[in-house]
Amino acid sequence: MLNSYSIRKFKNKAAYVLCLCCVVIAVVPLASILFEVIARGASQLSIQFLTSNGLEGGIGPAIQGTLILIGLTSLIGVPIGILSGVYLAEFGDNKYASTMRTINDILTEFPSIVVGITAFSIIVIGVTGSFSPLAGAIALSFMMIPIVARTTEEALKLVLNSIREASLALGAHQWKTILRVVLPAARQGLVTGTLLAVARIAGETAPILLTILGNSYFFQGFNQPMDALPLRIFLNSRQPSPEVQAQAWGAALVLILIVLALNIVVRIATKGRFKR
């Protein structure tokens, strides 16, 4: 009779190696992207490149535009997203909420070009009459809200019900319970969700392509076309000149660094007093 223990050991080993291979396969493209961006982009970085405008071969307006877009979009998207998540988690035990949840899930996966063209036809043509940071931020917040709402709902559901009951049993109103007890307990989840959404919208190209258009100059006003890093990467990489293409790589590296820096800063700033 075959030694069943050695067979099992072999199976165990085989499954382990298979898993490991898959991890490597998953990581290789990611690492190669990072490597490529750093290798090609790092040489571009200089004060002049980061601060001068497009006509002088810099990406200053794009960096500024991306920061403005992140700020404006978060201003619109984070409050709406978190409040939607609160509704879904705390009052979501009805059929309206489950319908909303489904719609929200679909929106999370919505093709971004569709969001862009919708924002273009409604806001750029219909409301503001021009390409603008405002139109871009509204388009991006369409993408941000569902992500924030979903992660907020998940984070709030992880808060133990006994904590809510403890607060209500002290005679606290429900809104105070949510605001002062439930949301703080879910803070890490909320921060993670918001950062995920910021990282996602910071790199979105399609919606801003059709809403902010691009600009070689620094911020001109909330009703004027503006530049942004993804847009700069997209536009410059399509140019024939190797110099301009190299700028796209530099812009790509800066975009990655901005998202990374935001992550670190926000995590430190919102770190709770107590580890859970």
């Binding site: 133990l160 006994s162 904590i163 009951e165 403890a166 607060s167 049993a169 002290l170 007890v181 703080p184 307990a185 803070r187 709770g272 007093r273 107590f274 859970r276």
Partner: peptide
């Protein structure tokens, strides 16, 4: 009318 629960549930934050 206050209440104390089965499992201790201090506010974690």
């Amino acid at each position: 009318v206050g209440m104390v629960f089965q499992k201790p549930n201090p506010f974690p934050t």
